[in-house]
Design a protein around this nucleic acid. Structure first.
Lengths: 214, 214
DNA sequence: TCAGGTCCTGCACGATCGGTCAGATTCACG
DNA sequence: CGTGAATCTGACCGATCGTGCAGGACCTGA
């Protein structure tokens, strides 16, 4: 996933023995690599050395672009939190009706597809990252989403549905996709995944007529 | 604070009865503390020092009872993998019918409730733990469960349903329960959770006749 | 030409990691 | 009593962690 607007190296002459990686935006590249590491092996297990190696930089370079490992995490997942906050704001504005929920589910799936790594990071590692400001923001946003999704009178069944939808979708989009498929790599179309996710989440989050959640 | 992963077998009198009136359950205690740490903050982020402190022992004592950090992980999650393997074996033997699935779902929920921490550990951290034998076993078991759940002809929708059920249930039982509730700690009854989980998972995994996404 | 800014790196630091090992303590059994 | 096994611990090791710092390479404007 790299946009190579590179223009300096067209393999003509240039007998440059040095690697001399003229990158486009180093900070963007580092942010992406770090996000993949955080999501797949975890924040604590991701060392700056690994991230730097994976991106082709030195550890010092990482700390030049980002003041600390925490700052790197912040930069990596902040866009996703912004998107989630606007998502819940729109949902609250749109109302809890079936129509409003239907619109929400579609946007929610698009949000998950667009920020799957970041969401997986703060959803499944939020516990170990308490205290980091951006994580607290994420937790607040998740709680706000859950609260707006279901009122307090029918907490157990509805809240459980939302939790399963959130955790399940994130799992299928990251963990499951990376170690369950892996062999029968039928190159599934992204649009198919989107449609199937919307279908299942609609089942979970839209009030069906006959349901025994009491 | 106690978990119901008892499974103790100290009922019958052992041949060489050794009545250590000291802390007989040192290794058990360490195993439980380690499992909590692994599940909540992650394997990589859990240091032997932290585990030892939480259990009231020294780091050396942990390494006396368990040869290595990996061995501690093995001891912590192996019972859950055994249970999962027998679970999938029973399901395969019982057949894929609706009745078979109904029975399976109930046992599956009980399995999740009994081994929630262990399952959460190898489900959500399996990626970063590749190479550890016990984790490979877990991955094989999960894949076997998914394969036995849905045949290959309708892969996307069915597999997605199973993934959401698994990841969602694990999420709600561990991550969600520890940082979503937290404030409005309405002491929910375990039986209620069980019933609600069974209901939702039945929706997801039982073939509904009219599965129109409206 | 020089000065200054941007980008990147090597080196060194204190802390902590998993792990080894030599005792200290206890206790059953002779 | 002594002896050996079981249990627990502190001291220590090499490696790696995140981070600070000085400086080199490169580009740009004066």
């Amino acid at each position: 996933m790299q946009d190579l607007t590179d223009r300096s190296n067209t393999v003509v002459g240039m007998p440059t023995d040095a690697p001399m990686h003229t990158r486009v935006h180093a900070s963007e590249e580092l942010r992406q690599v770090a996000l993949e590491q955080f999501a797949t092996v975890g924040f604590a297990a991701s060392s700056l050395q690994q991230i730097a190696d994976h991106a082709g930089y030195s550890k010092s370079s990482v700390l030049y672009h980002y003041a600390s490992k925490e700052a790197l995490l912040e930069a990596a997942i902040e866009p996703a939190i912004d998107a989630m906050e606007s998502l819940v704001a729109d949902f609250v504005a749109g109302g809890r009706s079936v129509a409003g929920r239907t619109v929400f589910i579609e946007r929610f799936v698009d949000f998950l597809l667009g920020h799957r790594l970041a969401v997986h990071t703060f959803v499944n590692q939020g516990q170990s990252l308490r205290g980091i400001p951006v994580i607290e923001r994420a937790i607040v946003a998740i709680r706000a989403l859950a609260d707006s999704m279901c009122e307090a009178d029918a907490p157990l069944g509805e809240r459980l549905r939302f939790g399963i939808a959130l955790g399940g979708a994130v799992y299928t989009l990251v963990a499951d996709a990376t170690f369950l498929d892996e062999e029968h790599r039928t190159v599934v179309d992204a649009a198919d995944i989107r449609a199937a996710l919307i279908a299942v989440l609609s089942e979970l989050l839209l009030p069906a007529d006959g349901r025994t959640t009491r």
